[in-house]
Design a protein around this nucleic acid. Structure first.
Length: 497
RNA sequence: GGUCUCGUGGCCGAGUGGCUAGGCACUGGUCUGCAAAACCAGCUACAGCGGUUCGAGUCCGCUCGAGACCUCCA
């Protein structure tokens, strides 16, 4: 029996603001779509948090035995910088500034994006489609919506008719916005005369002569509207109704609201079963913004080269830090918080390292099966990684207590403990040992024997009460990043990366 | 201005109305030749003011504060 039949997942659906029991459209299969980045710049750290959050979802669903198709798009078509009639799209602007062909910009930052996510140990999505690769599909959807009378053409552009749609549908169903309020709050922009109503959004935009990214269409040369690609690609790869749609909180309105409208207008179906929105990441209590300098790049964390940091942190430590908070909460990024996370992380990893050689007894004084289910329960409850991590630390306490002979464990339970710990830490949370993130030293076996030789020398010196020598060995090793740990039965060591 | 979210101990962060989240830091003890590590113990909050309830961090109202969206943004 598949694991997913034994575990009941509840997902917080941000459309209903309730935790709902997860049940996929097709038994055993899950379709998940997450809005990917616009590749016009180095990937934003907050963006990374969102993708790490959904990587956690992807990993847990797979761990439970679901066959998951995870689609995350790359937005490589120009979106206008503002909603005015004219303007430069962000990719074209960057291309001009960097003196590159737009597709060079796209390629450059797509590569950067992949590199960084790999550092964070994200599993690549099943399909990573691009907007420019799906112009045909987008045009087809526009035709359908036009046929249904829910869009109109104006001067070479096509707009979605929100008022007409709202007659028989609910525009605002996701964001909770009322159309009347939206109308009342709209400022009159002089350039919006093409639209029947300010709430209408572009499905197709006519390309001005200077606009570089352009494609032919039944309405003339232009480019697709910025909400449409997600509808086209999610429908193509996941169907008209699929399970999970994720993205950052800031995409809830208008982007996702418009996706629902487009989907419903073109297929008559509500496209998404569970909407999930990941919350923002702040830096030192404030929103990250390049303009104020309150900003940090992922690579700056890995190198420690930032005015906000006192040192470098391994990617996996940054990931661990993020997973200590729930994806739905705002998380504040700071050097102090990262330091605390790193210490906890080290303690967890050291404990996991100890499970293998734990002394076993005929029976156990610790309740391993109950603990194991608690780990599942945490993840089943809307992917609550901070609770899961709390349980992992309970295991750390167990391991250390068994090692200190204050508790005991049977071999069978030890195996369960080890397997569960491994699965949740590495497979589900996607953490890596620091050694794994730093390249494995090919001489590490030699290092092991060298250090063990020194440990033996030190033991001899201690036996002879030659503490000057023993302390010299200990202190100099520590300076080299090798920490010795004495306990009753001998001495262990760790190499600090 | 409108819509919405949030305000938890020294710090970070969980919390489904009733019994200790967890991590980091700190203090005391055990262990140690001394340390480190580990173990044991301690510190213990829920922005403010009202209300509902036998009982509220958890529900309701108001006040103050922070943030998101309403315009490109994960």
């Amino acid at each position: 029996m598949a694991l997913y039949n034994q575990q009941e997942i509840y997902i917080y659906n941000s459309q209903t603001s309730k935790k709902e029991k997860f049940s996929p459209v097709n038994e055993g299969l899950v379709g998940m779509y997450v809005c990917g980045p616009t590749v016009y710049n180095k990937v934003h750290l907050g963006n990374c948090r969102t993708f790490i959050s959904f990587d956690l979802v992807f990993r847990y669903l797979k761990y439970l035995g679901y066959k998951v198709r995870y689609v995350r798009n790359i937005t490589d078509a120009g979106h206008l910088e503002n909603d005015a009639e004219e303007g430069e799209d962000r990719i074209a602007k960057k291309a001009r500034l960097e003196e590159l062909e737009p597709m060079e910009v796209v390629q450059k930052y797509t590569v950067d994006f992949h590199d960084i996510l790999r550092e964070f140990n994200n599993i690549p999505p099943s399909i990573e489609p691009t907007a420019t690769g799906h112009i045909v599909e987008q045009i087809e959807i526009i035709k359908t919506i036009l046929d249904k009378g829910l869009a109109y053409e104006a001067n070479g552009s096509v707009y979605f008719d929100v008022m007409e749609y709202h007659k028989n549908n609910h525009y605002g169903i996701l964001s909770g916005r009322k159309l009347e309020d939206l109308i009342a709050n709209t400022r009159e922009l002089s350039g919006q005369s093409e639209k029947k109503n300010p709430q209408d959004f572009a499905l197709w935009k006519k390309a001005e002569p200077q606009h570089i990214m352009r494609w032919p269409s039944p309405w003339g040369v232009g480019f697709p509207g910025w909400h449409l690609e997600c509808t086209a690609m999610s429908t193509k790869y996941l169907g008209e109704e699929f399970d999970i749609h994720g993205g950052g909180m800031d995409l809830k309105f208008p982007h996702h609201e418009c996706e629902i409208a487009q989907g419903k207008a073109s297929t008559g179906k509500d496209p998404v079963r569970y909407w999930m929105h990941a919350n923002m990441l702040t830096l030192n209590g404030k929103k990250m913004a390049k303009s104020t300098g309150n900003n940090i790049l992922p690579e700056e964390i890995f190198t420690g080269n930032s005015k906000h940091l006192s040192k470098a942190y391994a990617p996996t430590v940054a990931r661990f830090f993020m997973l200590q908070a729930n994806y739905r909460s705002v998380l504040d990024f700071s050097d102090e918080a990262l330091q605390a996370a790193e210490k906890g992380f080290d303690r967890l990893m050291e404990a996991i390292d100890q499970v293998e050689k734990l002394p076993t007894s005929a029976d156990s004084s610790v309740a391993i099966s109950a603990w194991k289910q608690k780990c599942y329960d945490a993840m089943n409850d809307d992917f609550n990684s901070p609770i899961l991590i709390a349980h992992l630390f309970d295991a750390v306490k167990m391991i250390n207590s068994i090692k200190a002979k204050k508790e005991k464990i049977s071999e069978a339970d030890r195996k369960i403990l080890q397997d569960t710990l491994q699965s949740f830490t590495f497979d589900v949370l996607g953490l890596k040992t620091k050694e794994a993130s730093v390249k494995k030293d090919q001489n590490s076996t030699q290092v092991d024997s060298l250090v063990n030789m020194l440990i033996n020398l030190r033991a001899e010196a201690r036996a002879n009460r030659d503490f000057a020598t023993s302390d010299k060995i200990r202190d100099q090793l520590l300076e080299m990043g090798v920490e010795l740990k004495d306990h009753k039965d001998g001495t262990d060591f760790i190499v600090k990366p």
